[in-house]
């Protein structure tokens, strides 16, 4: 079995989900045996070397002048297909982030592989892989098989996490030159803007979200202050996004972002199913709500029943004291 992890980059760095793809590949290897290889496109050597701390021993990076610092779904799908074919890959794993979501299905087609998205667990039975995937906004989970010989799947971020080991595996990096022309770039990227200074909800380990219970847009200052102490990103419910208090990029939920941070703090959010759809796979959930019967408490690990406007400043002050002391 040849198992490949696609290692996406964002900006000039490997995205953190690249390491998770490696971890998932090793899980597949442990289940059904085989070799693991990393596949990357236009990523610099220093970045690639970090994967050795996640146990990767072999990596192929596609390099071509046309690929430098750009992205195009058609061209990248073509390169990834060539990379995978050159290695005789049977199983290709991509992170379920934007690039993985659009490259996975395209490569599955050219590769004549079955495809399944947003996997949260991998098992095996009689040598066949079984994938677990949330459906209906996380209200149910399916176990499914791909009936094709070759398989492509994406993994939900922050599920297949692993710590970097102190010692690096001995990693062999090879370069691959794809066959590529200007015409393969059917979508041209004009610009990429990284949201600077502000952590993205989809990226952060801790997210503090506010809802209508905050009462007024200016009270989000209290959310921002708590987020800052925790090094967290600010999220929001749809109610406050629709009201224009917060930008859509902060919305968590079915029509916003689906996230699984280590800690999710919901403040003044009732816990509607569509909101839960976006955050119920968070590792630890804290709810702050003045209504002890709010549905959010049913999914919470820890809850504070109280008025957010009164609780937040005191909680932030106490956290500051505790976290800065240690």
């Amino acid at each position: 079995m040849k198992i490949a992890a696609f290692l996406p980059k964002l900006g000039d760095k490997l995205h953190k989900t690249a390491y998770e793809a490696i971890t998932a590949a090793h899980q597949v290897q442990a289940l059904i045996g085989g070799d693991v290889v990393g596949l990357a496109i236009d990523v610099d050597q220093q970045q690639l070397e970090r994967t050795a701390h996640y146990g990767l021993t072999r990596l192929i990076v596609a390099e071509h002048p046309l690929l430098a610092n750009t992205y195009s779904p058609s061209a990248f799908a073509k390169v990834l297909h060539q990379l995978a074919s050159s290695q005789g890959i049977d199983i290709l794993i991509l992170p379920n982030i934007t690039y993985g979501k659009e490259l996975g299905p395209r490569v599955a087609v050219t590769f004549e592989a079955g495809y399944i998205a947003d996997v949260i667990g991998i098992e095996s039975q009689n040598g066949e892989l079984i994938f677990r995937k949330p459906v209906y906004a996380g209200k149910a989970i399916i176990a499914a098989q791909l009936k094709t010989a070759k398989k492509v799947f994406t993994i939900r971020p922050n599920i297949f996490t692993a710590k970097a080991a102190e010692t690096a595996a001995s990693l062999n990096i090879e370069t691959f030159t794809p066959e590529l022309s200007e015409a393969d770039f059917r979508e041209k990227r004009l610009s990429i803007t990284r949201s600077t200074g502000k952590l993205d909800v989809a990226e952060a380990d801790i997210v503090v979200s506010g809802g209508r219970g905050l009462k007024a847009p200016e009270n989000f200052k209290l959310i921002e202050e708590l987020a800052e102490v925790l090094g967290a990103a600010v999220g929001a419910s749809r109610a406050v996004v629709d009201a224009g208090w917060r930008p859509h990029s902060e919305q968590v939920g079915q029509t916003g972002k689906t996230i699984s941070p280590n800690l999710y703090i919901a403040v003044g959010i009732s816990g509607a199913v569509q909101h839960l759809a976006g955050m119920s796979s968070s590792k630890v959930i804290v709810a702050i709500n003045k209504d002890k019967d709010a549905p959010i408490f049913q999914v919470a690990d820890y809850g504070i029943v109280g008025d957010a406007l009164d609780v937040l400043p005191r909680l932030t002050a106490k956290l500051k004291e505790v976290l800065h002391k240690s």
Binding site: L10, G11, I97, T98, E187, R189, L190, T193, S195
Partner: peptide, 8 residues
């Protein structure tokens, strides 16, 4: 996209 915006 995660942590940013793209224009095509």
């Amino acid at each position: 996209i995660e942590g940013g915006k793209e224009e095509f």
